[in-house]
Amino acid sequence: MNSRPMSYPDLSTDLGGIKMNNPVAVASGTFGYGREYEDYMDIAVIGAVIVKGTTLEPRVGNPPPRIIETPAGMLNAIGLENPGVDIFLSEHLPYLRDKGVTVIANLAGNSIDDYAAVAAKLEGHAGIAGIELNISCPNVKKGGLQFGTDPVMVKQVVEAVKQETFLPVMPKLSPNVTNIVEIAAAAREGGADALSMINTLMGMAIDIEQRRPVLGNVFGGLSGPAIKPVALRMIYQVHREMDIPILGGGGIMNARDALEFIMAGATAVSVGTGNFVNPRAALDIARGIQGFMQDNGVKQISELVGAAQPR
């Protein structure tokens, strides 16, 4: 037994150039612009706040109903409601910067030019640590095919954004594909600094009294504990095949879940739906990871990344 008092474990991490004080981020679309949760914690303590998805122009979003609870999860079809990049830069970013929050912007669009244009607008603004790309959007020029389901489009959109920014770029991969490793490889070829995995799984619910789909948009994205095994599997597969930092998420509710993602190969994790259940989830999880590290003599969080991979 080591009788010396153990120093605090080091939770800081580097997600492809995004420096985080601890490895727990909050996922885009689940935490607004941070200030919505200020009554519950000091949001600057969170590893990173990935803000609501931002498009070039304001979007009103999908008609309601937009959400419905499902077993151990929920479906959402918000439809990218957001005030547009100009309002994000003038009203939300300065506030987060003043608070000292580690901000990751999240970009969405319906053409490669859209993504590039938003990235160009963000460039040069202080207070953004990195860019997450929502590539689960339909490409209008390709008949609505989602960017994230086609390796060629994934590579193109990452390349286009990389040309407009010096910030680390992290596409958020869609799980609605047959071969996630192929998509991850395309993102890396396009110059991705990290990968965010995974976005929601497409699903639906039906109202049997009304005999019609529940969601106004018919289909929605499934999130929550129900999708955790799928997310873990995909992260494990990608980490096994390539060396790129991964932000892992999908149904993380507690520190044990987060540690599973890290051991599958995630450099950092994101909490999404879990924030709705426990607004302080990100902090509680970071604390739980710290406790696990202390109990197990882990000095640096990176020691655990991919620990469950075959040796």
């Binding site: 607004g32 949760y37 009103v60 979003g61 937009r66 959400i67 918000i78 607004p279």
Partner: peptide, 30 residues
């Protein structure tokens, strides 16, 4: 009333079409 997830205006799940908020939606929660 509306189905809600976050309750604090973050998720935009409880959108409701109201005259005063057109062309967008009101958040029932906030």
């Amino acid at each position: 009333e509306e189905h809600m997830a976050c309750g604090v205006g973050a998720c935009l799940g409880c959108a409701c079409q109201l005259k005063a908020f057109e062309p967008g939606y009101a958040k029932v929660c906030t």
